[in-house]
Amino acid sequence: MKTGLLRRAVQASTFALIAAIPVLNRKGITVLMGSLYSLAIGPLRITDPLSGVQAMIASPAVDGVLLFSILIPVLPALIFGRVFCSWVCPQNTISEIFDYISERLGVKRFESLHLAVRSRYVIMACLLVSAPLAGFPVATLVSAPGIISVQTAKYIYEGAVGLELGLIGVIILFELFVVRRAWCNYICPVGSFLGIFRFGKTMKVAFAEDKQHSCSRCLACAKACRLGLDPMGKGLYPLCHNCGACIDACAKTRGGGGPLSFKF
């Protein structure tokens, strides 16, 4: 339960910050600036690696500050996996909320597309290749977290939002009525790019049965997964973004002796 509460707190803080940063900037407090494309904490810059890489291959030029700022999010991705997606990304939070609503409403939709995991990397690769051809960082157009944060700022500043926000509406409706968690599972290029930085030692949900940690096949973990994955099965990655809900559910039903845990 601990992870779950902490995660909810981080998710809520993200939304609070997305709204607070432009409001504070407006009052002249500029310690924190930016959006989920790029964030400035004092002199420190943190930039979405996909946007940064695209800008570099579209220009084509390597900006030192930009290069350093895209390496910062890569580090947590190497150690903890795609925790940005599960703990920070506002689109994931919105999708989780509407997933819950869809379940409650009993909407009939596809649970899974059974797409090869490679499909999301194909989408990302197409976007990367199209950047130099189109002459601008194309994936920024479909970066859901970026759009949500920039449009919130735009609303606070200009009292209006752009049509980009329509993408978020389309994602919500599609996931609500057609395919469960389609964006995060099969499309989002921001998540795909962060998923590249995974290696053997990256934190993962591990299913390990022994005498102390037996599995009763209660499926509490699979029910708890907000992405509709099966934590006991193989091929959890790269879709799993380490939110920890399955581990919480397992610990709850098995009284701490469950077979699921985070391992490096």
């Binding site: 940063i21 432009p22 900037n25 500029t30 600036m33 930016g34 959006s35 494309y37 790029s38 400035a40 930039t47 979405d48 946007s51 940064g52 695209q54 800008a55 579209a58 220009s59 084509p60 030029a61 900006d63 950047a131 130099p132 002459g135 601008f136 960082p137 920024t140 970026g146 920039v150 700022a153 735009k154 500043y157």
Partner: peptide
């Protein structure tokens, strides 16, 4: 157009 990552930071500044 190629370099701008559409982050909106200049507008905030």
């Amino acid at each position: 157009a190629a370099r701008c990552i559409r982050c909106g930071m200049c507008a905030q500044a």
